[in-house]
Design a protein around this nucleic acid. Structure first.
Lengths: 352, 352
DNA sequence: CTGAAAGCGCTTACAG
DNA sequence: CTGAAAGCGCTTACAG
C-alpha cells in the first residue's frame, strides 16, 4: 500500500486537477497569477493527494536549501548551563515560521573547524549559519564575511573590528544592576569574583561591576581565576577570611556563585543575611530549594528569534527594516534569597 | 571574485580533467570502475577546484536526503538535565561519520505533533528519525512503524507491544546497584523517593529498587509525588521525621535527590554520614562542591552512537550484524560523599 | 574502461 | 490566464 506521503508530485497533482505542472507550481508560488476557480481546483487536488513539494528538487532549482547551519559544541563536562539548549530550540522554532530548518554539524574549535563550514557551503547544504559561543579571536566571523557567507551570531565578534550581525547580552549592564541592587540593600563592601582577563564575556561583566562601583562611590575589588564552582569557592574563601571582608559577592557566573555559596556554608555564614551573593545566567540550579541564588537571566528566546530574523534578512527571506546590525539585550535580575535578608520588609544588612 | 566554493560542478571538473561528467561521478561513487591514471587526473581536478557534489542534486537523484530528523523539545523550565544536549551532540557526530546530518524541527507533544513528522516525510526532507523522550502512550513509534518510516529511539516504546528499534538505559539495574551499594555500607533501612506510578522511566527505576530490597531482605518503602526538588524535599522530610526513619534515600532522579539533601540540611543531618542519598542522571550539579551527590550516570555518548547505527542500518547505509533490535545499557554508579562516610576507611554508618 | 542518454521534481522566464 | 520548454546538478543503467 502506498502511504499518502509516498507518491504525489507536481505532475500527479496537475493531472488530478486537469492542469499543467506549472499551473500547480504557480498556485504554490504565485497564486495571484492563477484564476480563482482554477486555483481552487488545484488546491483541492493538493489536499486530496497530500502533496508537498520535494525539498531537494526545489532546492536544486532555487539554489536555496532552506537550511541554517548550526555547530553543536560538545557539552563541557560539568557545564551547568543549558542556555544553548534553549537557544537552539528558539532558533529552530523561529526558523520554522519561514520554512527553514536547522542543520546540525560538529566542528573542532578555532581555525581547524573552518573546513566543516567550507564543506557545507561547497555542497550547498546550508544557506547560512547561526553562530553561538563566539570567543575572543574566533576566526569564524571574519572568515564567513570574507567568503560572503550570510550569518548571524549570538555573541559579539570579540576581537578586531565588529563584523557581521550579532545579538548579545549586555553583561556590563547586568552587573551594574546587580551592584545597584546590593547598594540599595545597604551593602558597601561589594567584591567581584571573576575570570582571568581576556575572556570577552568575563571582561564585559567585570567592566559593568567596576563602573557601577565607581559611580556609587564603592571600592572595586576584583579577584580572578579560571574555572567554575571549585575556584569560586577558593576565591570567596580568601575574600571572606581576609581583612575588610566584603558583605556582598558579585560573581561572573552562577557556577562561581555556587562555589561562593559553598564558601559561606563552610564558615556558617547565611547567604542573604550575613553575605549577599549574586550570579549570572540564572541556571536551573539557582532555584533549587536551599540554593535560591539571585542571578541575571538572559532573554534566550528573544535572542534566538532576533538572530534568525537577522539571518533571514540577509538571505532576503524576510524584509527587515534597515535596523542596526547589532543588538544588545539587557539581562534581568532575578532576586532570590541569596541577596535578600530574611523576614518581612527590607531589613538592613550588615554594614561597615 | 568567485570564492573557491561558488563554482565547481561535475561538468567543470570533467572539462578540467578532460573526461566526461559521469566519469567524474564514477570516481566519486564507484572508483573501481575507473582506470587508475584517469582516476588520479580526476582526483587532482577535484582537489584543484575544491569540488563537492551538490547535496540537493544528489538527493534528488538518489532519493536520499542524508538527513536525520530530530525533534527538539522546549527545555522544561527548571530542567536540570542537560542529558539531551550530550545526546544530540553524539548523534550529530556519529551521523557525520557516514555523511549524514541532523535536521532539527519542533513539534507539539502527542498526536498533534505527528503532522510535523508527516510534513517532513512528504517533502522528503529526511530519511528517517531519531526519537528521544519517548513516554508512555507515545504515538510516534506505532505511527512511524505503520507508515514504514525508518527510526530509532533513545527510550523504549513504553506502551503496547515493543515496536521499533531502541536503545535505553537499564534504570532497574541502576537502582539495584544503588541498593546493593548502600547495603554493603551497612544500611538496612533504605527508602525510595519516586514519581507517581505510570511514568515508564519511574516505574522501571522503582522496580529495580524493590527487587534489590527483596533479594537482600530489606523492607521496601516507597513514597511518591510528581515533580522535582521541591517535592523531593517534602517527601524526604516526611520520611526523616517519621518513625523508623530510613538511614538511606534512593531517589528516582538527581532533582529529587537535591530536594532530599535539602531536607537533611534543614534538620542538621550530614549527607553520607547521618543519612546516605543517591540520585539518578549524574547531572552536572551533582559534583558541585558541597553537593557531592552519588548518582547513576548514563552512557549518553554510547547511546547516541548506537541509535545512529540502528537507524543507518535500517536505511541500508551501514551493514549491521543482524543484532537485537533493542539494547539496554547499564548506568554506572558514581560514588560521592553523599553515600560515603567521611574519614579514612569505610566507617560503619548509623545502624538500626 | 569511458561516454551519450534519461530522468529525479521542481521553478522560472516566456509564448500563446 | 495557462502551458510548452529549459535547466538546476547529479546518478544510474546502458552502449560502445
Amino acid at each position: 500500500m502506498a502511504t499518502p506521503e509516498s507518491g504525489a508530485t507536481l505532475e500527479s497533482v496537475a493531472s488530478a486537477a486537469g492542469v499543467s505542472r506549472q499551473t500547480v507550481s504557480n498556485v504554490l508560488n504565485a497564486p495571484e497569477r492563477v484564476a480563482p476557480e482554477t486555483r481552487q481546483r488545484v488546491e483541492e487536488a493538493i489536499q486530496a493527494l497530500r502533496y508537498r513539494p520535494n525539498r531537494s528538487a526545489r532546492s536544486l532549482r532555487t539554489r536555496m536549501s532552506n537550511l541554517i547551519g548550526y555547530c553543536v559544541q560538545p557539552a563541557a563536562a560539568g557545564n551547568l548551563n543549558p542556555v544553548l539548549d534553549r537557544f537552539v530550540h528558539a532558533v529552530t522554532e523561529s526558523a520554522a515560521g519561514h520554512g527553514f530548518h536547522v542543520l546540525l554539524f560538529t566542528a573542532p574549535a578555532g581555525d581547524a573547524g573552518l573546513d566543516r563550514y567550507a564543506e557545507l557551503l561547497a555542497q550547498r547544504a546550508v544557506d547560512g549559519f547561526v553562530l553561538a559561543d563566539t570567543v575572543v579571536a574566533d576566526p569564524r566571523p571574519a572568515w564567513l564575511t570574507e567568503q560572503g557567507v550570510p550569518f548571524a551570531a549570538f555573541g559579539r565578534s570579540w576581537s578586531g573590528p565588529d563584523i557581521g550581525r550579532w545579538v548579545d547580552v549586555d553583561g556590563a549592564a547586568g552587573m551594574t544592576e546587580a551592584v545597584e541592587h546590593l547598594h540599595a540593600l545597604g551593602h558597601r563592601r561589594v567584591a567581584f569574583i571573576g575570570w582571568p582577563e581576556g575572556s570577552g564575556v568575563g571582561d564585559d561583566r567585570v567592566a559593568g561591576y567596576t563602573a557601577a562601583c565607581l559611580r556609587l562611590g564603592l571600592d572595586p575589588r576584583v579577584v580572578r581565576a579560571e574555572g567554575g564552582a571549585g575556584t569560586g569557592r577558593a576565591l570567596a574563601t580568601t575574600l571572606l577570611d581576609g581583612d575588610d571582608a566584603p558583605t556582598a559577592l558579585v560573581c561572573v557566573s552562577d557556577d562561581s556563585a555556587y562555589g561562593a555559596l559553598r564558601a559561606l556554608a563552610d564558615r556558617g555564614l547565611r547567604p542573604g543575611e550575613d553575605v549577599a551573593v549574586v550570579g549570572f545566567d540564572d541556571t536551573p540550579a539557582a532555584r533549587l530549594p536551599g540554593v535560591d541564588l539571585t542571578s541575571l537571566s538572559q532573554p534566550i528566546e528573544q535572542i534566538g528569534h532576533e538572530v534568525v530574523q537577522m539571518l533571514l534578512g540577509l538571505l532576503g527571506v524576510v524584509v527587515t527594516p534597515p535596523g542596526p546590525e547589532h543588538r544588545l539585550l539587557r539581562p534581568s535580575l532575578v532576586v532570590r534569597a541569596s541577596s535578600r535578608p530574611a523576614g518581612p520588609g527590607p531589613a538592613a544588612p550588615t554594614e561597615a
